[in-house]
Simulated scan of single mutants.
Amino acid sequence: MNGRTFLSKLDDEEKIIKSKADAYNKLVQTDDNRLNEDVRTDINAVIGEVNLLLRGKLKQFRGLCERNVEKSNANEPIPLDSDLEGFWDITYPLIDKVKEKFAKLDQRKAKQWAPIEEYDPHDVNNRPRVVDDRLKQLQPQQNKSSKIPTTKASNDDLKKLIQERRKAAANTTNQNHDVEIFVAHK
């Protein structure tokens, strides 16, 4: 593909995301009481992302495509078709991501702006935990009687003991450098 082909693709994609951004911008400007602050924030975030994309990567890509088509600018190197393909491979996922966000906004709009529960199977932190019976057998059994109850009084006693030992250690010069370990009483 050459610069003309990419300029045509770029024009098409820009029209799509610009029209969506304009439509949602008009919606935010209305006094629709169903649009709470969270919804307005989500819409404005996507519109902002579109504006950044249009003024940043897409503008840069358009310049590269135009230089490829003109091939007359002697001051700067002329981007090759393969350069444009590489840049498009980097840029198009950004366009696609914005389009996905608009699709999610469309879904919320269709559901009267109710939040949509999302589940990403690729997000390790967002997967539901499935504990197999075999895994349960491997997990250590917790014995409630083995837990050491800690009360405020025992913690206060331990803190007092530690303070006393620190004061004693500060007052005396301990040449042996013995190590003492303090353990809470059972």
Rank of each mutant, 00 (worst) to 15 (best):
R34F: 06
R34C: 02
K159I: 14
K111Q: 11
K167R: 09
S19M: 10
K186P: 08
Y24A: 04
Q107T: 12
N143M: 07
K111S: 09
R108L: 04
K136C: 07
L58A: 04
Q107V: 12
L35Y: 03
E164K: 09
L10T: 05
L84K: 01
K57G: 12
D22C: 01
I116W: 03
Q163M: 06
F182L: 15
N33D: 13
W113G: 02
I43Q: 04
E37I: 15
A103T: 09
I90H: 06
G63S: 15
D132N: 11
K99H: 02
I162Q: 07
K101M: 08
E14V: 14
I90Q: 08
R134L: 10
E13A: 11
R127V: 06
S82G: 01
L27G: 05
V183H: 09
N126T: 08
W88P: 01
L138E: 11
R34T: 09
K159Q: 10
N33M: 09
I16N: 03
K18G: 00
D89W: 00
P149E: 15
I90W: 10
I90K: 09
E164D: 13
K159S: 12
F102V: 05
N25Q: 14
V130Y: 08
D38H: 07
I95R: 00
V179N: 08
K59W: 04
R55Q: 11
G48R: 02
P149Q: 13
E118S: 12
E70M: 06
I95M: 01
I162K: 07
H122Q: 11
V131A: 03
K144P: 11
F61K: 01
L35V: 07
K152R: 13
A21K: 01
V50T: 04
L58T: 00
K109W: 04
N155H: 07
A184N: 13
K9S: 13
P140V: 08
E100H: 05
K97N: 10
K109R: 14
K15T: 09
T30I: 08
I116N: 03
G3S: 08
K144T: 11
E180N: 08
K97R: 09
N36C: 03
D157S: 10
K97V: 00
